[in-house]
Nucleic acid binder design. Sequence first.
DNA 1: CATGAATGAGCTTTCATTCAT
DNA 2: CATGAATGAAAGCTCATTCAT
Lengths: 188, 188, 188, 188
Amino acid sequence: MDKKQKIIEATIDQFTTKGVENTKISDIVKAAGIAQGTFYLYFPSKFSVMPEIAKYAVEEIMKEIHASVNLHDAFDNKMEQLVKAVFRITEEKKELFAVLYAGLAQSEHLKQWESIYSPFYNWVYDLLEEAASKMEIRQNVNSARTSRILIGLIESTAEQLYLYDSPSQEEIDAQYDELIVFIKSALK
Amino acid sequence: MDKKQKIIEATIDQFTTKGVENTKISDIVKAAGIAQGTFYLYFPSKFSVMPEIAKYAVEEIMKEIHASVNLHDAFDNKMEQLVKAVFRITEEKKELFAVLYAGLAQSEHLKQWESIYSPFYNWVYDLLEEAASKMEIRQNVNSARTSRILIGLIESTAEQLYLYDSPSQEEIDAQYDELIVFIKSALK
Amino acid sequence: MDKKQKIIEATIDQFTTKGVENTKISDIVKAAGIAQGTFYLYFPSKFSVMPEIAKYAVEEIMKEIHASVNLHDAFDNKMEQLVKAVFRITEEKKELFAVLYAGLAQSEHLKQWESIYSPFYNWVYDLLEEAASKMEIRQNVNSARTSRILIGLIESTAEQLYLYDSPSQEEIDAQYDELIVFIKSALK
Amino acid sequence: MDKKQKIIEATIDQFTTKGVENTKISDIVKAAGIAQGTFYLYFPSKFSVMPEIAKYAVEEIMKEIHASVNLHDAFDNKMEQLVKAVFRITEEKKELFAVLYAGLAQSEHLKQWESIYSPFYNWVYDLLEEAASKMEIRQNVNSARTSRILIGLIESTAEQLYLYDSPSQEEIDAQYDELIVFIKSALK
DNA sequence: CATGAATGAGCTTTCATTCAT
DNA sequence: CATGAATGAAAGCTCATTCAT
C-alpha cells in the first residue's frame, strides 16, 4: 500500500488521539508501520501533513453533504438537510476538527485553507444562487458573501455544541431548531 | 511588581509575537524579567497560562463593547455597534485571538472556555431579552440560544476577514453590511 | 519542640519512605513543619543528617538488646537472645537499615560509622570476655576480632532474610536455628 | 564496538571513580565515547545499569574463586583458599563493591540480586554438599542455608577490613586467621 | 526507495541555596 | 532564630534529523 497514504492516515489517527503537539514523528511512523527515516521521504515535518488532513476533512464534509442533501428539494428543506449534515459530521469527527482549528490558527497554512475549503464555499454559493433565481430567498443576498457568513454560522454553532459543551440531545435539538429559524428568517 | 501578572503579560507578548510553539519558557522569563525557576512557582507549563490569556481577551472584548455600544439606542443601532466593536477588537488583537483559537481546540481547557466567555454571552443575552420585551425583535427568539448563535456568527465572520483572508477595506465594509442585513433579517 | 530533633525525625521518615536520593530538602521541611531556610540552620545538606540517623539506629539496636538479653543467663542463652534481638530489630526497621547501608557505602561518613557502632562492638566484646573467663567458649577466641566477625555474621544473615528475600516464617526459623548451631559450634 | 557494553564499562569506571551520585549521564557518555541520546537507547537511567554491574562483579568473584581454589584439595584447604579469594577480590575491587552495596539497598533491584548472586551461592552449596558426603564437616549442616550464612560471614568480614576500616596488614592477617578458625570450628 | 541506530542541540524542569523581611 | 519567595546553575531527557547500509 502507498506509504504516503499510510503516513497521512497514521497522522490523522495520532493527531486526533493525542493532539498535534503531543504527537512525535516516532509515534506516526510506529502507527504507520514504516521506518523513522521513511517519513522524511514524503513530508518535511509533522505540520506539513496538515494540508492533507484538511483536504481529507473537507472531502468528508462534502461526502456527508452530497449524501444528505436532495438537490431537488425546496431551499428551506435543503438548508435543513445541510445544517443536519454539518452537525452530524462535526459530531462524528469532532477530534479531527479540533485538530484542524488548532492547526489553522497556526500561521503559515492559513492561505491554503482558503483553497482547500473552496468546494464547500462553492457548493453553498450555488445553493444560494439557485434559490435567489427561484425567488426562494430575498433578492439582495450576495451569494459569495453570504455563503461565508452561513458556513461560519453553521459551523460555529456545531462547534459550540460538540467541541466545547457536551449538552443533552434535547438541548442540541433545540439549538438546531433555533438555528434553522434564525437562518430562514435571515434569508427571507 | 506582581510576578504572576508579569508572567501573564510577558506570555501574551511572546505568544502573539512568535507563536505558542515557538515560545520557550526562557523567552517568557526573559521578557518578564524574572528567573527561570520563578515561572514554575506560578504555572506548571506555558500552556497553563492560556486560561489567563483567555480571561484577558474576554476582558478586552467587553471593554470594547462597553465603550462602543450605547445602551439607550434602538436595538438595530446597538447591534450595528456590537458588530463594529467585535470587528474592531478582532482586527486590533488578531494575533491574540489566533493564539486563543489554536490553544482552545487543545483539549483540556475547552471546559473552562465556557465560563470565561460567559460575560460576553450574558451581555448579548440581556440585549436580546430587552429587545424582545420592547418588541424590537421577533417574539419566538430564545435569548440564551440565540446569544450563542449570534456571537458565533459575528466572530466567525470577523475571523474569516481578519485572520484568514486579508481583504480590502471595501470588501470588509461590504461583508459588514451583508452581515448586518443578515442579522437584522434573522431577528425580525 | 526542638527543631533539630524534628528535622532528624522527618528525615528518617522521608528517607525510609521514599529513599535517600528521592528525598528533597523540601520534603523534609514539609514533613518537619518548618520553613525551607530553617533546615540550613542545623544541617548543611541532607547527607549530613546520616550520622544522626546512624546514632538513632544503633540506639534502637542497643535498646532491643538490653531489653531482650538477660545478662545472668548462660552464654549460649545470651547468644540466642542476641540473635533474636538482631533479627527482630532488622525486621522492624528494615527500611532504616537499608537507608543506612546505602548511605554508609557512600564515602565520607565511613569513618564515623566505626565510632557510632562502637557501643554494639563493645557490648559483644564484653560478652565474649566474660564467657571466656567463665570457660563457656574456646580459649583462643580473640574477643575484639570475634566481636566484629560475630556482628557481621548475625547482621548479614538478618539482612539476607529481611531485606533481600521475603521468605516464609518457617524458613526464617530454620535459618535462625542453622545460624545458632553455626555460632555455638564456632565458639566451642 | 557494542555500545551497550561500552556504556556498562564506562559506568563502572565512573561509578567507582567518583561515586554513583556524583556521576552524571554526561560523564558516562563522555567516557564511553558515545552521544548523550545513545545512552537512553539502552538504559532509562544511570541506576538501571546497576544490575549489569552486579553481574560483572559476581563474574569477577567467580573468576577469582575458580582461579584460586583447587577443587581436589581437602575441605579445610579449600575453605582457606575461598576466604583468601574473597579477601583478595574485595581489596582489589573495593570501590566496585562499595558502589554495589550502596546501589543494592536502593529498593527496586533487591529481588534481582538474589538471582545475580546465585552462581556464588551454588558454588558454596556444592562445596558443602561434597564435604558433607566426605564427612569433612558435621553432618547436620544444611548446605543451602549454611552457604548463605558462610558467604555473608566472609563478605561482611572482608568489607569491614577493606571498605570501612583501613587496618595494617598484620591486623588483616590476624583477622583472617581468626575467621578461618571460626569457620572451621563452626563446621566441625 | 527504505531502513533504524545514532546523534546532539536544545529544551524543560528541578531543587539546593540564599537573603530580605 | 525563623521564614519562604526567589533564584539560576545544573542536569535530565527528548526527539527531529541524518546517513551508512
